[in-house]
């Protein structure tokens, strides 16, 4: 554990809590892509199957359980509790265009051809692209509420901090996880354009982020 890794996990947690609180307090999931949230729930589910097989640390176990619980709670709020506020019209990204290549890639590239390893790889690849329905929705409607952009900011920050963590781990312990690092870098690139808009529009005091 290093400071980048811890800060990354905290950012990730903050992002998820921001989204959950936004939906809960406003009693609405307008502007939120349910598809992205379903994909994140699938990411956590397929990645954390090792909760049942190996024990790493109390921190590891607790965080996994928290991420799973919060992601399912988010999906529940969007698709059940506040379903009438869900903007399915604009959440029109074709998820199969992500799932099919990701399933294919995880069968081609993995550390071992076992169900657990292939599912772990699938979760890593899927996480890299899971935000795309959300970014697509923002592009389609041309705007995002500032609270939604804060969510995306912390999610992107988490990815950037994980890269710093890998650089640190490579230099201090020679750790290099090729699958995680390559897809992590790809994932972070998706946020660059958003980061630029966030800094130029939201931080400078606009309540909504409108696309130019």
């Amino acid at each position: 554990m290093n400071v980048f890794r811890l800060a990354g996990d905290v950012s990730h947690l903050v992002a998820i809590i921001i989204l959950l609180l936004k939906i809960w307090r406003s009693r609405s999931c307008a502007g939120i892509s349910g598809k992205s949230q379903l994909l994140f729930a699938l990411v956590f589910t397929t990645r954390y199957l090792d909760l049942f097989t190996v024990y790493i640390s109390a921190y590891n176990t607790i965080m996994k359980v928290v991420f799973l619980a919060l992601s399912y709670a988010t999906v529940y709020l969007i698709y059940m509790r506040f379903r009438n506020t869900y903007d399915s019209e604009n959440d029109s990204f074709r998820v199969e265009f992500l799932l099919v290549p990701v399933i294919g890639l995880s069968f081609l590239e993995h550390y071992a051809f076992t169900p657990m390893e292939v599912l772990w790889t699938f979760s890593i690849f899927l996480e890299a692209v899971a935000i795309m329905p959300q970014l697509f929705m923002i592009t389609k409607t041309g705007e995002a509420e500032s609270i939604t952009t804060h969510y995306l900011f912390f999610l992107g920050l988490y990815r950037a901090l994980y890269i710093a963590n890998w650089v640190w781990r490579y230099h201090t312990e020679g750790f290099f996880d090729q699958i995680a690092v390559v897809s992590g870098v790809v994932q972070t690139i998706f946020y660059c354009d958003f980061f630029y808009l966030y800094v130029t529009k939201v931080v400078q005091g606009r309540s909504k982020m409108s696309l130019p």
């Binding site: 990730h12 071992a112 963590n165």
Partner: peptide, 10 residues
């Protein structure tokens, strides 16, 4: 042959 990595990261 590739080595299975330890999954301590989230």
């Amino acid at each position: 042959k590739k080595e299975v990595k330890s999954k301590d990261e989230l």
